[in-house]
Design a protein around this nucleic acid. Sequence first.
DNA 1: CTCCCGATAT
DNA 2: ATATCAGGAG
Length: 218
Amino acid sequence: MAVSAAAKKFAGQVSQLLKKHYPDAKCSLNFSTPLELLVATILSAQCTDERVNLVTRELFRKYKDVAAYAEAPPKDLEKAIQSTGFFHNKTKSIQGCCETLLERYNGQIPQDIGKLVDLPGIGRKTANVILGTAFGIASGVVVDTHVSRLSQRLGLSQEKTAEKIEQDLMDQFPKKEWIVLSHRLIQHGRKVCAARKPSCGKCPLEAICPKVGVEGKG
DNA sequence: CTCCCGATAT
DNA sequence: ATATCAGGAG
């Protein structure tokens, strides 16, 4: 699908206003290596970054490399990450990833979207976070719960699935903006354009926002 | 589509 | 009580 010039112009306005208001938006998950970011991002599913950072402070002290996660008794890992929710699934994902990394990639994290998505528990969202934030590779736009919601409200996409929303965003924003755009949209979604009670009065995008689906408008 | 799941705000 | 939080798999 070709994108209209009007759509790209609107995207440019969004981009400019976000840049002005969130000049140095960055990843809010604490990490010091690509592996730590991979683990933190798996833990971040349906959980606040604040909670993830609380858990990983101890977790990263105990598990230093891929082998440490792969060899750990599952019960130990489950206990360590319990408070982030979905802990059975997340433990299987972390250990499955680390086992596969040892088997196929000599314990290294591949810098390739296809290979990352092929790992257990890694979808496009997590893969885009790892590539963009750990390696500086613009493989796509990170579409999480915040980016999905903001894309709808701003009228950037009418699609429902994360995959289709991501394609719409990639079509409207230049590739060089994808990584920082993701961080800015997420920060804006957390602080201003919140799910339940959006602070439209304090929103820097107020003047151009169609407010699709926002109560009182739409 | 459903299921996984604890912590917090409303 | 219920919605929501940097999702992914079956």
